[in-house]
Design a protein around this nucleic acid. Structure first.
Length: 920
RNA sequence: GGGCCGGUAGAUUAGUGGCAGAUCACCUGCCUUGCACGCAGGGGGUCGUGGGUUCAAGUCCCACCCGGUCCA
């Protein structure tokens, strides 16, 4: 959809002498004060003209520009809002905050929740990974992390705040009055915006070739290709802070403006030389004109710059390339400082994976630029550079440094191991013969072992193995994964075939201690009962449902499961004859179960608070499950929780239990709760609605949670951690038990110990020592046995050899052995054939009937096959066996041992047959 | 959330269902007054765990544990 021209024909434009024009190059329509203007003013139609020539009345650094913007809007009735984290934990559709409006999606933009202030202004750090490859190559047009300054207004029919006119008027006033940009230099391009399912017309503010801002008027929701009016009309603006500061300074690239002294420091550290500013300025101008950034367009731009400057393209490239890498490093390290600073734990899934991707990418770049300083040090430099504007980064510096070091170590290890893997693979004779690495190997090395093809190439080619990297490599990897896509289970609708019913009154929320309740039946079939109100807690938030009974006319019906959907609670019961509507029943909750569940649930909150205090602020709940017997809490953390940390968490949690802190559960306005407790509220995941239920353990933890809790931590009694495990990279699981279950657990531990102590015949306190000694003895005994076996083998083999029989050139050594089993026979047979290469040894154990047959080199040389012989022999004894030419093993039933000599005779026949064939 | 790869001696690892090996490190002796490369000998393994198939499993099947890695 494209809006008609009336969508952009603003009174503001008409009153102030703007005219609407169409760009001669790109054919887009735009509004301008300059009647002579023919081009829209955006690149690539027009090259950058602000470099060394800023249009503003003075230069602003990042901090000054941000302040100028926010205070401008503050003075005009907007409330300044603190920035949100760069990790979008309140969203389940995106991992990172990609725009200022993302902070208010989906609840505010859908109209469900009012905005915290209206109108508001914010400068929101945003991270976008989609332009990664372009960062550094376009002089600063592409950044992974940037701040989106914005003013937002949310208007509804009842509450009109402001719309297009005021938005553009504010924009124009800010640019012209506060920044001093001449009005006739600002162009407004008409454009249509769509994002995240929302859509609307927008105007792009362009100055001297640079798009500075986007003024979006969100008013449609796109559903199945059709546009429907949104309940709200939302002013969604985005002013690129970095671009504003850049244009005001007119530096050759945006990076000088953004990073100031940090830029100089990194130049020094890397020893990379700054290209001639003229060259740089020229390169940036042309980079700005590239529509699509790829190898081809970069090369073309380079060639043009080179010819403009009268330079050789190759030397221009060698001057610019390291510098571009440096700029990308600046960008990526800032991104990482924010990602880690906001508590992302690197991992192999979700947002954590993006952090890992960044770390590995920037590490490769640092290697290229030969920066020997650790990554963590560059991050620390970023933190100190941005610290005055983002003090929370300084607070989390320890974590940032620690995790960066850890991740780099992991990466280095992966690469090192990978290199030796490559060397092993290319030793393969088939690959050696072809002199090239097959493509599937290359893909597998990347997919399974994380080895980028460039590294494979660099390692293989010195060994004469060619590696072809196809252009479509990334696509091929992607295809590997596309085959089996998500198999999301559709939730069954528990309300299927039901008549429309009112929402159930949730009595358990305000009377959590009520065990009995009279309620009216609104609906019933053979397995489902719906009441007007209930004290049964339905499954949700990781807490299992209550069970219990419903009593009707003295008849008790078991409630086996309770679920909630669209505000209606469904009691699943053992099959019954449906109860008549309007009948009153008495609900009775299985109280023991409920108490166990409550204790476990409250414990989860307490443990989370304890884990956060022991391990750090990056700890978030990744999942939880509370059952009657035990519970588990999954938290984000970057390494295995050590036993001592685990104990510390346990001690701290139990301290909270002993302190008998009140646990309060209450409904609260979403914005108020967020202001009071921050994003920490959303531990359990995305929560819907304008009011949320807050569960607060006094001065310890507060979470948005729908579960039922103890009213006091003391009711839990005891929290005992059972174990912890790593369920995936970056996520640790803590299993624990509370209350009665905790006592039971300790009892069972005790019983185990008592049992061990009984078996070892040692007092419990000395079990440790006794076990260690036992293991020691076990180990020496094993060695002893091996030694004795050798001696035994020596003796027995000699003995048996004395009774050997010569058949042709073969020495047949046979025997049934008492008290010896398979493991003993092997060395004996081995001895025999070692001593006499023409020997064939057949040994049978009288203990377990196992058969070992070995043939010496000479014997096999004559065509004797120990495996075959074993097969024949064991078969004739009624057993089974087989093997290779030099060794065979098998087993025969003990009852048939008296047929031994008989069976040996058939072996003799084979040997003789062999000789006959030979002599013929 | 969906895949893929791997787990064998302290480290790096080989191993067709049939006697668990190599290299480095370690120990002892010799040689050489020593500088990753001298020689000989030696110690060190619950083959991740638990089931199953089999006369026989490091090897095949299943489940679990641990590690790595890619994608969304």
């Amino acid at each position: 959809m494209i809006a008609g021209p009336e969508a952009y024909r603003l009174k503001f434009f008409l009153d102030n002498g703007f005219t609407r024009k169409q760009c001669k190059m790109c054919k887009r329509n735009f509004w301008t004060l300059d009647p002579e203007r023919e081009l829209c003013g955006d690149s690539p139609c027009v090259p950058y003209s602000f470099i060394n020539n800023p249009p503003t009345k003075r230069s602003f650094n990042i901090k000054e520009m941000r302040e100028a913007f926010l205070s401008f809007f503050e003075k005009r009735g907007h409330t300044r809002v603190r920035r949100y984290p760069v990790v979008a934990r309140w969203r389940d559709d995106i991992f990172l905050t990609i725009a200022s409006i993302a902070c208010f999606q989906p609840h505010v933009t859908s109209g469900e929740v009012p905005p915290p202030f209206n109108p508001l202004t914010i400068s929101q750090p945003c991270i976008r990974m989609n332009d990664l490859d372009n960062v550094g190559k376009t002089g600063g047009r592409h950044l992974t992390i940037f701040e989106m300054m914005a003013h937002h207004a949310f208007s509804s029919k009842e509450n009109e705040v402001y719309w297009k006119e005021d938005t553009v008027s504010y924009h124009h006033e800010f640019l012209t009055k506060d920044l001093g940009i001449p009005g006739d230099e600002i162009a407004y391009i008409e454009h249509w915006w769509e994002g995240g399912g929302d859509a609307g017309p927008d105007l792009e503010g362009i100055v001297r070739g640079l798009e500075l801002s986007t003024l979006v008027f969100m008013q449609y929701r796109k559903i199945n290709g059709a546009y429907r009016e949104l309940p709200l009309r939302i002013v969604d603006t985005g002013y690129g802070l970095e671009r504003f500061a850049w244009i005001s300074q007119g530096t050759p690239t945006a990076f000088e403006t953004i990073y100031g002294r940090l830029f100089e420091d990194l130049l020094k550290i890397s020893g990379i030389e700054r290209p001639d500013p003229k060259v740089l300025a020229e390169a940036t101008k042309f980079a700005g004109m590239m529509n699509i950034v790829d190898e081809g367009s970069i090369r073309a731009a380079r060639e043009r710059v080179a010819s403009t400057l009268g330079m050789d393209p190759a030397s221009l490239d060698s001057q610019l390339k390291p510098f571009e890498i440096l700029m990308a490093i600046l960008d990526h390290t800032k991104t990482l400082a924010f990602m880690l600073g906001d508590g992302i734990v690197p991992s192999n899934v979700q947002a954590g994976y993006l952090a890992r991707l960044m770390i590995r990418r920037v590490k490769r770049m640092m290697d290229y630029a030969q920066i020997s300083k650790p990554l963590s040090e560059l991050l620390a430099m970023q933190v100190s550079y941005w610290g005055d504007q983002f003090p929370e980064l300084i607070e989390n510096l320890d974590y940032i440094v620690r995790v960066a070091d850890l991740e780099v170590a992991r990466y280095t290890k992966t690469i090192d191991q990978g290199k030796s893997l490559i060397l092993r693979i290319i030793k393969d004779p088939e690959i050696k013969r072809r002199g090239a690495l097959p493509l599937n190997q290359l893909i597998q090395l990347y997919d399974s072992h994380g080895l980028p093809p460039e590294i494979v190439k660099a390692v293989s080619e010195p060994h004469g193995i060619k590696v072809d990297i196809p252009d479509t490599f990334d696509t091929m990897v992607a295809e590997l994964h596309s085959s089996s896509q998500s198999s999301k289970k559709e939730d069954e609708d528990i309300l299927q075939d039901l008549p429309p019913l009112p929402q159930t009154e949730l009595v358990y929320y305000y009377e959590p201690k009520t065990k009995r309740l009279k309620a009216k039946v609104l609906y019933s079939d053979r397995t489902r009962v719906i009441l007007d109100r209930t004290i049964f807690y339905p499954e949700g938030g990781g807490q299992l449902s209550d069970t219990g009974s419903l009593t009707v006319d003295g008849r008790q019906i078991r409630v086996i499961n309770v679920q909630k959907s669209r505000g209606i609670v469904v009691h699943f019961v053992e099959e019954i004859a449906p109860i008549k509507e309007g009948t009153y029943v008495e609900c009775l909750v299985d109280w023991e179960r409920r108490v166990a569940l409550m204790r476990h649930h409250s414990s989860t909150h307490i443990l989370l608070g304890a884990a956060r205090r022991v391990l750090g602020e990056h700890v978030w709940q990744e999942g939880a499950q509370k059952s009657v017997e035990k519970s588990r809490l999954d938290i984000s953390h970057f390494e295995k929780i050590s036993p001592s940390q685990l104990r510390e968490i346990e001690v701290l949690a139990n301290k909270v239990v002993q302190e008998c802190r009140p646990i309060r559960a209450y409904f609260e306005d979403r914005n108020k709760a967020e202001q009071r407790f921050g994003m920490r509220l959303y531990q359990g995941g995305v929560v819907q609605g304008p009011t949320i239920r807050v569960v607060e353990v006094e001065d310890w933890d507060a979470e948005a949670c729908g579960g039922i809790h103890c009213s006091n931590t003391g009711e839990i009694g005891l929290i005992k951690i059972i174990r912890s495990e790593r369920i995936q990279d970056g996520v640790e699981r803590i299993e624990f038990v509370s209350g009665e279950q905790a006592i039971r657990f300790i009892h069972s531990q005790e019983l185990t110990l008592q049992e061990i102590s009984r078996i070892l015949n040692t007092p419990a306190e000395r079990v440790e020592k006794a076990t260690a000694k036992l293991m020691e003895e076990f180990s020496t005994s094993k060695r002893q046995i091996e030694r004795l076996r050798k001696i035994l083998a020596q003796r027995v083999s000699t003995e048996l050899s004395l009774r050997s029989e010569k058949i042709g050139g073969i020495t047949l050594v046979k025997g049934t052995l008492e008290d010896l089993s398979n493991e003993d026979l092997i060395p004996i047979a081995s001895q025999i054939v070692e001593r006499d290469h023409n020997a064939l040894a057949i040994l049978v154990s009288k203990v377990d009937g196992s058969v070992v047959c070995m043939a010496g080199e000479g014997a096999t040389g004559r065509g004797l096959n120990a495996g075959k012989i074993t097969e024949v022999f064991t078969r004739s004894m009624g057993g089974r066996g087989g093997g290779k030419s030099d060794v065979g093993q098998g087993r025969v039933p003990l009852e048939t041992l008296d047929r031994f000599e008989q069976s040996i005779q058939s072996i003799k026949n084979i040997i003789e047959g062999l000789n006959k064939n030979k002599s013929q």
